[in-house]
Design a protein around this nucleic acid. Sequence first.
DNA 1: CTCTCCCTT
Length: 895
Amino acid sequence: MNSILFPAQKNDLLPLLDQCMAKDQFTLQRSLNKLDFSQLTEESPAWKKWAAKAQRSLEEAQQRKLRVPKIQYDMALPVAAKKELLVELIRDNQVVVIAGETGSGKTTQIPKICLEAGQGVRGKIGCTQPRRLAAKSVSERIAEELGSPLGEVVGYQVRFLDLVKAHSLIKVMTDGILLAEVQNDRFLTQYDTIIIDEAHERSINIDFLLGILKQLLLKRTDLKVIITSATIDTQRFAEHFTLNGKRPPVVEVSGRTFPVELRYRPLASYEDDAGNVVEQDMTTGIADAIDELSNEDPFGDVLVFQVGERDIKETAEVLRKRNLKNTEIVPLYARLAMSDQQKVFQTSQKRRIILSTNVAETSLTIPGIKYVIDPGLVRISRYSVRSKVQRLPIEKISQASANQRKGRCGRVSDGICIRLYDEANFNARPEFTDPEIHRTALSSVILTMAQLNLGDVQRFPFIEKPADKSINDGFRQLYELGALDEKHRLTPEGRQIAKLPIDPSVAKMVVEAEKNGVLAEVIVIAAALSIQDPRDINQTTMQAARVAHKLFEDERSDFLFFLNLWHFYEHQRRHLTQNKLRKLCKTNFLSYMRMREWHELTVQLEQSLKRIGMRVGKLNLFEEKRKINKQGIASDEVQERLSDLHSIAVHKSLLAGLLGNVAMRDDDKSFLGARSTKLFIHPSSALFKRKPKWVLAGELIETTKLYARNNAVIDIHWVEGLAKHLIKHSYSDPHWQKKRGQVGAYESITLYGLPIVSRRHCNYGPINPVEAHKIFIRHGLVEGQLFSKIGFFVHNQALVHKIEKLEHKLRRPDFLVDDELIYQFYDERIPKQIYSKPAFEKWAKRAEKETPEQIKALYLTEAYLMKQQASASLLQDFPDQVHLSNQLSFDVDYH
DNA sequence: CTCTCCCTT
């Protein structure tokens, strides 16, 4: 390649810049702007340096171009038929929306079409998938079709695994990875194309990315964006990406699916003996639908959608009792042990009835399904801004979701879908499922936006803007964590929190743990809270699992369960082979995969912390404690546990991230949580049978009740120091304290309505100086309950006493002026900030020296204090001494 | 006396 020629003028270099790698273009452009060509020659070092850099970038692009393999398509796939059109549209438009059903081949073919359109040279073609497994299998498939080993031309990256090389042309990844990359490279300069696949799923990651990309397109006019989605709601995407009046083209690609017959079979209702209309229960409805299908075809596999594990178990029970011939019942849900999940992919001689949660709707594709039974319900997660808790209500699925379920049986042959509701019911349902961004807490998204300086959240181009109250709640949560200040600005701690790849509240625990010297312990717990529960339990193994897990339980806290388990497992992990480790997991009812993720996440956190300058030390030594047997006697068995001292430090750290999750025991079973919520300890908790006064809940989720999972016993006094910005103080009964010479009061503190401190004695002066000043003057000075030797005060007191004595003597209490007048006298002359004896004396002593006239004015006079003068004759009637006949004189006191 | 699913610097 020829070297770059010295230009006649600067602008001659611009076409060349467009050939450079996208990642270099910006810096090259900027350094070019700084060069002054009137001062430069071909031999100038500044020019030579620039030209060399541009040269390297051009060569890299050239190298990449040479690596583009020969592209072939499977012409049986519907996308392949539209290849020419798509290549043209991608060349001519910045954004293209492609709609296609499953079986259209869009996911695997579009990245290849992009290559053919000349993309992937100046930067990678980035292709996102919602799930890790999909990222892996999609990249494997494309690599195979391009005849290149995985990790060369095509690679993939998911959490904990990066199989992409600098020279790779296509990078498949989860949308979470791309979102994370934005934080290090706001302009996504390593890509020249971004494909967002499955955009119709509208996960929070996808919605956030679509907003970021919309902003980015204005700055990276060279970037191509392709949105692919099922054939629903494509116009919404086109509208979102309409820039300067230019609407992106929408291309529809047909799917390759088989017809599915739709049958509506609403649950029957009947009248009971009392004449009430009763609806048939869902399980019977399902069983009847299976009978209907069995009558027509006793062999085709059936997929039944259920809302949860419990319903699956119930339905399985009913079906088993029906003794269906040649039938195998297979439960399926995400929490199921891996080996049990694998059963779904094994074909069987028998007809299979798969009872599944929503995993089978999108996440898992079960081969060979002929029939679908859809009760039309789903358990969905909704964050309630009002009660600040996550709820898991059962709701009717949307039309889009019902159609997706129906499509699960038309993949290999014709199918039948039975809906357990009628057509009118279907038509009355919402068209689309509420996108996740409308259903989840926004703290994480808002924190990322603050960190990236993405501007006003209210004005961010979300495809569907979240409600203002939910945005405000996100700000509130981040303020609670101390990640944002009251003006919604990122705090230094917020910056640290944002840098950790975990939920902000969990990240806060970690940041706090560093201050408390228990970072090693808390990252283990934080990682455990961030992955799926490593316990592998189902209905049948429940009892045995509980016994096995009892070893790791700690009566103080469920969080310590994780630490104990870690302590045990880490030791084994270092010494056992992978095979033996798998077995160990199995016998201990643990998921090997999740235990591995737990370990990997802990390591990842350690690395992230290192980057923000925090070093993770060793785990604190476990103390040994003798177990107490049922008779209350210390047994020979020794239990290892974290010392109380370390446990307190750990839980204080956890508390910092969970200030809204403290609860006080209310009655025998329930607890009172923040904002007067009533909650219950989840039966899986080690604290379920204990009745501590205060608990800290790892999470609060409302299902049948509001349940607290992962709980710890806490000392409520820890809250005060951590929640200074949240607690509310109230003061009662302010009073003068003679002995201390200060104003005291009783202080009560609440956090979200919970009584953290009640009637604690406190020094009231600094809290309410105005009121304390009044009390000081009234009780200390006027009533004389101040013991001070300051001259004017001693004098004034003596004077008052003298007059009082006079009143007693004369039996006429009308000489001394009202207290109110004395109060005014002092109030006018003593500075407002004086409300205690020490402050009073310090001020007076100084004033005596520096401003004696000020002190002089504080000497009361008889004239001021006396309402009237006592007449001489009156005084004679009440002598101070009495002379008894020819003897002694006595002093006389009058009372 | 028991919670759907997915993702990360």
